[in-house]
Amino acid sequence: MPETGEKQASVVERVIDGIISSIISGEFQPGDQLPTEPELSRRYNAGRNSVREAVKQLQAYGVVYIRRADGTYVCDSYDQKMLDPMLYNIILHKNDWQDFVTLRAVMDIGTLHLALTLPDVEVCVPELERLVEEMTTEMEGPAPSKERVMELDTRFHALIAQTTHNPQIASVTEYITRLTIPSRLETVERVLEGGLSDIRHFVELHRQMVALIADRQAGRIVEVVKNHYIYWENDIMPGDDPAAKEVPG
Rank of each mutant, 00 (worst) to 15 (best):
G219A: 14
G31C: 06
L118K: 05
D241H: 10
Y229H: 10
N166L: 00
R52N: 13
P35I: 03
W97E: 03
A161P: 05
V55P: 04
I90E: 01
Q98D: 02
E53A: 13
Q162G: 07
S171M: 06
Y73K: 00
T187A: 10
L128G: 04
Q98T: 13
G219T: 15
K94V: 12
E140F: 11
S197M: 05
D240T: 15
E140V: 14
T163R: 01
N234H: 14
G62H: 05
I91K: 02
E223T: 15
A105I: 03
S197N: 06
I23H: 00
H157M: 05
P126T: 07
D32W: 05
L116P: 06
H113L: 12
C124Y: 03
Q8V: 13
R52E: 14
H201V: 11
V74T: 06
T102N: 03
T187L: 11
A214V: 14
Y44T: 14
E39N: 03
E147S: 15
D70T: 10
S50T: 11
Q59A: 12
V51Q: 02
T117D: 02
L116R: 00
I24S: 09
N89C: 09
H165N: 08
T164C: 00
E6M: 04
E133N: 05
H157Q: 07
Q162N: 10
H113P: 04
V225G: 05
T187D: 07
E129C: 03
E6Y: 07
R190H: 09
S22N: 08
D215H: 12
Q33L: 04
Q8P: 07
P119G: 05
E138A: 04
V125W: 01
A170Q: 03
P126K: 01
G5T: 12
V210D: 01
D79K: 13
L192F: 08
Q8S: 09
N166P: 05
V149C: 14
D96C: 05
S145H: 09
P2D: 08
Y229L: 07
F100S: 03
I160D: 00
S171T: 15
S21P: 09
E3T: 15
T154H: 14
Q162L: 05
F156I: 08
S10H: 08
I221W: 02
G141K: 02
Y78I: 13
T36S: 09
D32Y: 09
H206K: 05
R220K: 15
S197R: 08
G249Y: 13
R148V: 15
H113M: 08
G71I: 00
A211T: 15
S41H: 04
P35N: 02
D70I: 10
M107S: 08
V224Q: 01
R190Q: 05
L196I: 11
M86Y: 13
M86L: 14
D240G: 15
Q80W: 10
L128E: 04
T164H: 02
T4S: 13
R178Q: 10
V121S: 05
I24Y: 01
A161F: 00
N45C: 07
T180S: 07
P119M: 00
M209A: 12
S22K: 07
D235T: 11
V15P: 04
E127F: 07
V121K: 01
E53K: 08
M209D: 08
S22L: 07
E147G: 15
I16L: 01
Q168E: 04
H93S: 09
L112N: 10
P126I: 11
M237R: 13
E174K: 14
V191F: 04
P119A: 01
K146M: 11
V225R: 00
